[in-house]
């Protein structure tokens, strides 16, 4: 298995911000700035695994109250009720709105869980410097980045509906605490994905840095 040479081996380092490749003087100075854009130069993102792991852990913790607490309070003709995400899914499914139920389920349950699993997998394998299925892991990372754009769907729905439906006694919808935690989950998982340096996937045992 012949791998292309590493930046470390060539004595160069790439800028995170502008992508400029410059000489690797980090060993001497310990700190260097990009000559073009001025951003700090790192061979890898600093503390990538730790940051991604911390954000992921926080996101997973917040995911529990996000599901336990009601995200939305709907009142129709005086009969109000708090709805959690999963109960909403079940009710929509029971009511025959399979499409909406699937969308909510995907956005609120499937996507966050996928992110947790994928990021967790990536973090674990990168910490062990595993050489297993590198390409597939890289593809998973791209997937996580892609779905991250859509993770705020629930929060958006609640925000828009709560702003639109204000008919006092007739019908009223208010956000509840759960949606805040859900938003935190989304933000933290995105931060986790951002903090993760995908180049770590390729840092196998066979290379020295």
């Amino acid at each position: 298995m012949s791998l292309p040479p590493r930046a470390r081996q060539l004595g160069v380092v790439g800028c995170h911000a502008c992508g400029l490749v410059c000489e690797d003087k980090l060993d001497e100075t310990g700190h260097a700035d990009c000559p073009r854009c001025g951003a700090a130069l790192h061979r890898r993102r600093p503390d990538s695994l730790a940051r991604a792991g911390a954000f992921l852990l926080a996101g997973m913790i917040f995911y529990i109250p996000a599901n336990m607490l009601p995200v939305m309070y709907t009142s129709l003709l005086g009969s109000g009720s708090d709805n959690t995400i999963l109960r909403g899914v079940v009710e929509f499914w029971k009511a025959g709105s399979y499409g909406i139920a699937l969308v909510i389920f995907t956005a609120s349950v499937a996507v966050p869980c996928t992110k947790f699993l994928v990021l967790g997998l990536l973090l674990a394998t990168c910490r062990r410097r595993s050489r297993w299925a590198r390409r597939e892991r890289a593809r998973l990372y791209r997937l996580v980045e892609f779905v991250g754009y859509w993770s705020m769907l629930d929060v958006l729905v609640v925000a828009i509906v709560a702003a639109l439906v204000k008919f006092q006694a007739l019908s009223d919808i208010e956000p509840r605490l759960g949606i805040l935690f859900f938003g935190m989950v989304v933000i933290l998982t995105m931060l986790s994905a951002l903090s993760f340096d995908p180049r770590l996937i390729w840092d196998g045992d066979d290379t020295n840095r």
Binding site: A54, F55, F62, P65
Partner: peptide
């Protein structure tokens, strides 16, 4: 790493 404060706060909350 200060970043570990984030899950710490999450746990606290």
């Amino acid at each position: 790493s200060l970043v570990w404060l984030v899950p710490g706060i999450a746990v606290l909350i």
